[in-house]
Design a protein around this nucleic acid. Structure first.
Lengths: 207, 207
DNA sequence: CGCCGATAGCTAAGATGCATAGCCTCCTGG
DNA sequence: CCAGGAGGCTATGCATCTTAGCTATCGGCG
């Protein structure tokens, strides 16, 4: 009877299980003890792979932000202008709704982490790439990217937190927000009023 | 020598101290032990006034949401249209920046709490009142209010979490977001109408 | 004025959970 | 084959929440 089976763990595997756990039972239930049970080792053994609970939380945030960046990148591939922007914002919310607990883990470990900052930069870069098609760059692009991120994150955060109590369709609300963002971008470029012909310059998917 | 001095506590007083503590040292440091030290009693004594740590967190969230509603109400007093909307959004972010830890406590205890829902309703009502001046009501107003809340919350959350790494002025970014929201309201009826037609034409799958 | 019950404090103790220390076994490379 | 590191374990200490049960204080009522 072999007494110490060598599970064959790794830092990534521990994070995998931890994310599963978060998705299943929520952020608050993320405990080293629970993770240990799931991977089938004693709690202190986890320290051979990760440096404590704080580190684990950090790794979960980095992983999630990175996944989000991947989703956004895939969503805008082969698209541009309003079409790209709309798909980007839709993909953003979709990710949050598919993994609400994981998404809630993001804002917890904000600053001071280079890896998380790197993953965050990837998100911002996708947005900036989309804005390039609007002839936006420099400080204006930064301001616009922040606004887009704020809109997407705010909506996703509020909805996943159950912040929209009323019966109205949240999809319709989000479509309105997307249109607001697009209208705002046109405003930056100087065309204050929204013109249907301008908007249909991109492929007809949007209308 | 009187051995049990009767500090003269109350539920509200405990919450006061707890919020102070959160502001000072952060959400993670909110512990019954630390609160007990600040108010000058032993930890178990707190249970005479609040029902455990969960209840305390809940009360902090309710208090903060209520304060936020007060601020927003004050900000729009005697104003209307774009002026009111701009001041409302500015007041929203100002509150978050003044009390970042308190604000971070809000999204933690989201659902299932009637008191928090009531305070949240007050926030929404202020926004809806502002939208009334735009001749908006009914479902359209709900969609617009959600978008405004999402924009303000998203920006505040990202900024307080240190999410804006680049050097560009965040005030300018926020002014842009405000302009985007205002510009979006100008076109709301057409946008929402289009949304409905789009949605009823397709099966509405989210991805 | 004194008592008496409710209230608000206390200490003690149990349950979890994080983290460190130190040991033991398995596997691999030489 | 055998040496040593890597990956597992148990034991332990500490912080925290929470419950249980005791005691002192205070305000109202006889």
């Amino acid at each position: 009877m072999s007494k110490m089976p060598r599970v064959g763990l790794s830092s990534d595997a521990v994070v995998d299980v931890a994310i599963e756990l978060v998705d299943d039972v929520g952020l608050d239930a993320l405990t080293l003890a629970a993770v240990a049970v799931r991977v089938g080792v004693a709690a202190p053994s986890l320290y051979k792979h990760i440096d404590g609970l704080g580190e684990l939380r950090r790794l979960i945030a980095v992983r999630s932000m990175s996944e989000l960046a991947d989703r956004l990148t895939a969503a805008v591939l082969g698209r541009s202008h309003d079409d790209a922007l709309r798909q980007l914002m839709l993909a953003y919310r979709t990710y949050a709704l598919e993994h609400p607990n994981r998404y809630a883990a993001l804002p917890q470990h904000p600053v001071s982490d280079p890896d998380l900052a790197t993953a965050g930069t990837r998100v911002v870069d996708v947005i900036l790439a989309v804005l390039g098609a609007y002839q936006l760059d420099g400080p204006e692009a930064i301001h616009a990217a922040r606004s887009i991120r704020a809109a997407a994150h705010g909506f996703a955060a509020l909805q996943t937190a159950g912040g929209f109590q009323l019966a109205e369709d949240t999809d319709a609300s989000y479509e309105l927000l997307i249109h607001m963002v697009i209208a705002g971008l046109l405003h930056i470029r100087g065309s204050v009023h929204l013109d249907r012909q301008e908007r249909s310059a991109s492929t007809g998917a949007d209308e």
